[in-house]
Computed example of a mutant assay.
Amino acid sequence: MLASMTNTPALFIHGLWLHASSWQPWSDLFAARGYAPVAPGWPGEPDTVEAARRDPQAVAGHGIDDVTEHYAAVIATLPAAPVIIGHSFGGLITQKLLGRGLGRAGIAIDPAQIKGVKPLPFAQLRSGFPVLGNPANRRRAVSLTPAQFRYGFANALGERESGDLFDRWTVPSPGRPLFEAAFANFTRNSPAAVDTANTTRGPLLLISGQQDHTVPDVVTRATYKLYGDSAATTELKQFPDRGHSLTIDSGWRAVADHTLAWLAAQGIS
């Protein structure tokens, strides 16, 4: 869907292991509220979940910079600066784009850790191990098993809902971004670096699910603190009893409604 010439564009960016179509309920809601939503996939991502599963290596090898430039090119085609909404690694990309002044506002939901974030909880290490446990995965696309998805994404859900979400939305994803984020603090020019000191960027909302295993709440809180030197608006919203699946599970609407209310409070509609 292309953004109209009059409505504020809303650009949705997914993270690892979810297909771009997982944003459809959000896109429908934002369109009903007057936004012009767009939800393109990552570089090389096939158009459907089924096609992505048939060709897992289509996305292999793409890193954070590749994905950032891919979405920067999408923004260049839009009629106005968009609201950028990203989940997980999409939340990291959202922050990079907003730091470059390419968005009117940003919402980073359970965002992957940016350079400078120091906490590394055990739950996060366990969630990342299916990729980080094998250095060869840096060049590959990797799929989660149902058990890995349940631990990393759906630990706050019942087993049936976890299985349903896994069957509906999960796809193979490149391992490279996880390695880049994991070693960001040891890499001088890390692609996971964000301009957190930018005082002229649009407002940013960080959202955390406090039961998240993939991006634990302490990681999002540490990200929030990195913005302390910027006079630009940065806010943190925590959702108790929510895990990494909070954008796609049965409670997604509460997160989306809070996002819309926050945007309205910033004078953006």
Rank of each mutant, 00 (worst) to 15 (best):
N137C: 06
H19G: 14
V218A: 15
D55L: 05
P135V: 10
V117R: 00
G34M: 06
L206Q: 03
G152H: 12
D167T: 09
A232D: 04
A105L: 03
N155K: 08
A147T: 11
S21K: 00
T77S: 15
S269F: 06
F89I: 10
V255I: 14
V194K: 06
D65N: 15
I64H: 06
L246Y: 11
S269A: 15
E69H: 13
S190Y: 11
D164K: 13
V255L: 12
Y227E: 05
P82M: 12
A182S: 10
A3T: 06
A197S: 14
G44N: 02
W26L: 08
D164N: 06
D229W: 02
L92H: 04
G133F: 14
V83C: 09
R150V: 03
G175M: 11
F186I: 11
I107N: 06
I13Q: 04
F179V: 09
E235I: 00
L102D: 02
I109W: 04
A73P: 03
P46G: 12
D241T: 12
G133H: 11
R104Q: 08
I207K: 03
T200K: 09
T145H: 07
L132H: 10
G175A: 03
T234V: 15
T247A: 15
G116S: 01
I75C: 07
S269T: 14
A76S: 15
P172Y: 11
L178A: 14
L11G: 03
I114N: 01
T196L: 10
D66S: 07
L16P: 04
V131A: 04
I207Q: 13
D47E: 14
G15D: 02
W252K: 15
W252H: 15
T94R: 01
Q238I: 13
P9Q: 04
R253N: 11
P25H: 05
R253H: 13
A123D: 09
Q148Y: 12
R221N: 13
Q24R: 12
L165S: 11
V49A: 06
L98D: 01
G91S: 04
L92N: 08
T200A: 15
G91R: 01
I13M: 05
T196M: 08
S27H: 07
G106T: 01
T214P: 01
W252E: 12
A231L: 00
G44H: 00
P130K: 02
P82R: 08
L226I: 06
A72P: 01
L29N: 04
S230N: 00
Y35R: 05
F186C: 05
D55P: 00
I109K: 00
G202I: 01
Q210P: 07
G44I: 03
L226V: 03
S208A: 15
P191Y: 11
H87D: 10
